[in-house]
Amino acid sequence: MVVCVCNALRERDVREVARNGAQSACQAYRALGCQAKCGQCVPFARAIIAEERAAA
């Protein structure tokens, strides 16, 4: 699933960086070499990161 249309980020990418230590949406975007543009994806990215942190 696409999380961020502006940066073409997929859910699997966000999950991977969350597993590798990203604790916020900003950290995840930086780890993926981009930044949020319109911001509509940030709540979804936060939810994905929270899921991954809870599962760890």
Results as ranks from 00 to 15, higher is better:
residue 19 R to T: 15
residue 15 R to A: 05
residue 38 C to I: 00
residue 47 A to K: 05
residue 54 A to K: 12
residue 8 A to G: 10
residue 16 E to A: 13
residue 39 G to R: 07
residue 11 E to T: 12
residue 11 E to K: 15
residue 7 N to T: 09
residue 29 Y to L: 12
residue 31 A to H: 02
residue 18 A to S: 06
residue 9 L to V: 03
residue 8 A to W: 13
residue 30 R to A: 07
residue 6 C to I: 00
residue 39 G to P: 03
residue 1 M to V: 15
residue 38 C to V: 00
residue 8 A to N: 13
residue 42 V to C: 08
residue 50 A to L: 02
residue 40 Q to P: 03
residue 18 A to Q: 00
residue 9 L to R: 02
residue 8 A to E: 10
residue 3 V to S: 00
residue 39 G to H: 06
residue 8 A to I: 14
residue 12 R to Q: 09
residue 38 C to W: 06
residue 6 C to M: 09
residue 1 M to D: 14
residue 7 N to C: 12
residue 32 L to T: 14
residue 12 R to L: 10
residue 27 Q to M: 11
residue 49 I to W: 01
residue 56 A to R: 15
residue 56 A to P: 09
residue 43 P to L: 11
residue 16 E to C: 10
residue 29 Y to K: 02
residue 15 R to W: 01
residue 15 R to N: 00
residue 27 Q to A: 13
residue 32 L to S: 13
residue 29 Y to F: 12
residue 30 R to G: 08
residue 24 S to Q: 06
residue 52 E to W: 08
residue 17 V to I: 01
residue 36 A to G: 12
residue 47 A to P: 00
residue 53 R to C: 07
residue 31 A to L: 12
residue 8 A to C: 11
residue 37 K to T: 15
residue 43 P to S: 07
residue 29 Y to Q: 06
residue 51 E to G: 07
residue 35 Q to D: 11
residue 9 L to D: 00
residue 31 A to Y: 02
residue 52 E to H: 05
residue 19 R to A: 12
residue 5 V to G: 07
residue 40 Q to V: 08
residue 39 G to E: 02
residue 12 R to H: 11
residue 49 I to G: 01
residue 8 A to D: 12
residue 28 A to C: 09
residue 13 D to M: 12
residue 25 A to R: 01
residue 48 I to E: 05
residue 15 R to S: 02
residue 1 M to R: 15
residue 6 C to S: 14
residue 41 C to Q: 01
residue 44 F to T: 11
residue 56 A to V: 12
residue 7 N to R: 14
residue 38 C to T: 01
residue 6 C to F: 07
residue 52 E to M: 11
residue 45 A to H: 01
residue 6 C to P: 07
residue 27 Q to R: 04
residue 23 Q to D: 10
residue 55 A to C: 08
residue 55 A to P: 05
residue 49 I to D: 00
residue 21 G to H: 15
residue 32 L to R: 06
residue 16 E to L: 12
residue 21 G to N: 15
residue 14 V to Y: 11
residue 37 K to V: 10
residue 37 K to I: 13
residue 4 C to K: 03
residue 35 Q to H: 14
residue 14 V to H: 03
residue 28 A to F: 04
residue 45 A to K: 02
residue 34 C to A: 14
residue 3 V to H: 01
residue 19 R to C: 04
residue 28 A to W: 04
residue 26 C to D: 11
residue 4 C to M: 00
residue 15 R to Q: 03
residue 7 N to H: 11
residue 55 A to E: 08
residue 19 R to G: 09
residue 27 Q to D: 05
residue 23 Q to E: 12
residue 22 A to C: 08
residue 54 A to M: 06
